[in-house]
Write a protein that binds this DNA or RNA. Sequence first.
RNA 1: GCUCCCAUCGUCUAGAGGCCCAGGACAUGGCCCUCUCAAGGCCGUAACACCGGUUCGAAUCCGGUUGGGAGCGCCA
Length: 466
Amino acid sequence: MSSSVITRFAPSPTGMLHIGGVRTALFSWLYARRMGGQFILRVEDTDLERSKPEHVGVILEGMKWLGLGHDLGPYYQTQRFDRYKEVIADMVKAKTAYHCYCSKEELDVMRGAQQLAKEKPRYDGRCRHGKGPGPQSGRPPVVRFANPEDGATVVEDVVHGPVTFQNKELDDLIIARSDGTPTYNFCVVVDDADMGVSHVIRGDDHLNNTPRQQNMLVALGKQPPVYAHVPMILGPDGAKLSKRHGAVSVLQYQEDGYLPDALLNYLVRLGWSHGDQEFFTRAEMIAAFDVRDINKSASAMNMEKLLWLNQQHLVRTDPKEIVPHLQWQLARLGIHSDDQALLEGIIVAQRERAKTLKEMAENSRFLFGEHVTLDAKAAEKHLTADGRAVLSELRTRLAALEDWQAPAIHAVLEGLATEKSLGLGKIAQPLRVAVSGGTVSPPIDATLVLLTKKRALDRIERALIG
RNA sequence: GCUCCCAUCGUCUAGAGGCCCAGGACAUGGCCCUCUCAAGGCCGUAACACCGGUUCGAAUCCGGUUGGGAGCGCCA
């Protein structure tokens, strides 16, 4: 039996949960599900200044909407400060960490000199070797990790392969600020170890601080987890994700009318593939996913493909499952309906002509309410003298129709068309305008069924009067 | 500047030395279907960044160049 897999998603509540974060969350979630393991949600809120409770709320809400449920947590790093302090004290005692009394000004001077010498700016370890200011400076010290000074650290990354860093390139990072609060890189290490995280799946912008995290783990006598650094997601223009496209809250996608499964399907295919398969249900994704198949290069967002996939999901998902999402969109338009049969009917009638639920809701507006206002241009074009004559005839025949079902309605239209030697279009368009107000709608027979006989006839009546 | 990462159609990708004068998907062009709009079907345009090397043979391996990205905080 393989040892149990534990993955985690560890966002910091300093902003929105955006597409990039969602994808790493998805990969972590998928891998845990695939391996029958557990998925942890951990909020990295050690930056007291920038972390905001409302951001935590939005992240939680986003994860819920996506259906990426966690098995453990959410944990909050701010609630684990005692634990971090304990570990820091141990490390200082074990001499794997030390106090540093350098002031910010001193550090700035040091970095300035290094940059001038075309070196990589980094802490030179003066306090580690007794050459710093020391306690007599009177300043509260920070605590730094004593990184190995020689040799190399190799990160065995699942997606990148082995990546080697010379230890002399790695400086002694601060693990506790002068006010005693612990810093990110340190908390991550303690948490991942304490929580038994087996696989760390995160953005490859973290690849550079992985060797230091690994060294800290070693100093703590812990086995480092398996690392998988996934490539970044770029905006549609190939540049970094910006507010204009992509770098918005994931909840924006809900508002825009995307199905969570469609968004997940789209994101899973960014940097990962399974042969030529494009469409994945949630279950298929879980069954096929493997971190070892993740690509190394960054990928750009493509809204058209997202739209296409959304429609694919709209068409291929059981309408019953889509109903709540459509209701949500309709509610935003002020339309409230609990008519399950009607809503399912709308989904079936509209799903091939709407790429989003928002579009579907908007296009279905005319099906609710008693009356509809006729689009002037549409009326001018189709409610001509001929069109009215057709409508009038239709009114009589449809009124006489007992069986208000698509085939019967279709037969009526077809019959009239043949009798008058007209194309179906000459019959359907005036009717469509009268009944929907415009020139576009689902097939006219299906539209009439959804509308009900009473309202359909009523609208024909009003169009003839108007 | 230094360190690290990356590089196949416009975009997402298949490809783990011969199956590839490179396959699929989105987008795009044309045709078909058609009561509108769609959806669908068929056909097409379109890529191995560059230069060397290894090999009988390279998109695939190695080196370099170029181009992109990330990191270098008492941020995460």
